[in-house]
């Protein structure tokens, strides 16, 4: 009798621990189909490579955490010479700072609109930014979209110039999938 109870207990422990170990988490990773575009009078373009994780729970959206990084070498302005020039020390200094990073610190929700406060790091300089965004959830996929302005001078990306404006309008579409 005692042995039967112990065996049942062990089987129950197996079922419990296995189901907990494989329980789906709120962990999402950036999936294909993302777009990071920037626009100004001149230049405009996009970054083609990004990675990152998002901790997202629809029942508690304000606990969402973003941890994203963009490969600055993947810049595409439609002009090969300009792409190359953007990597030099005066601009992104891609050899020393290969990634632009964003790590959220606070997310607030109003309806389906999010306000994402976080640390944006470009060229080793970190500034706090508040990024407005919206999200759409479809199955195991969530897509975040938004637009915000980045002042390149704050990050010492290039110098002040009459040709290249200080403000770059950045629009993003980041689909993430549950892992």
């Amino acid at each position: 009798m005692k042995k039967t109870i112990s065996t049942i207990g062990l089987v129950a422990l197996t079922v419990l621990s296995t189901s907990l170990a494989w329980m789906p988490s709120a962990h999402y990773e950036v999936s294909d189909g993302y777009a990071i575009d920037f626009k100004s009078k001149d230049p405009s373009g996009s970054f083609k490579t990004m990675d990152g994780t998002v901790e997202f729970d629809e029942a508690n959206v304000e606990a969402t955490q973003f941890n994203l990084k963009i490969d600055v070498k993947s810049i595409s302005t439609g002009n090969g010479m300009m792409n190359k020039k953007s990597q030099i020390e005066e601009w992104f200094n891609a050899e020393k700072y290969p990634y632009a990073k964003f790590k959220s610190t606070k997310v607030t929700k109003k309806g389906s609109d999010l306000s994402i406060v976080g640390d944006l790091t470009i060229k080793g300089i970190t500034k706090q930014y508040t990024i407005p965004a919206t999200y759409v959830k479809s199955g195991d996929k969530v897509t975040f979209k938004g637009t915000f302005n980045v002042n390149r001078i704050e990050f010492k990306v290039g110098h002040k110039s009459d040709v290249v404006p200080d403000l770059m309008k950045v629009s993003f579409q980041v689909p993430v999938s549950k892992k």
Partner: peptide, 8 residues
């Protein structure tokens, strides 16, 4: 829980 599960 993963370690308990795999050991069992």
């Amino acid at each position: 829980f993963g370690l308990i599960s795999f050991t069992l």
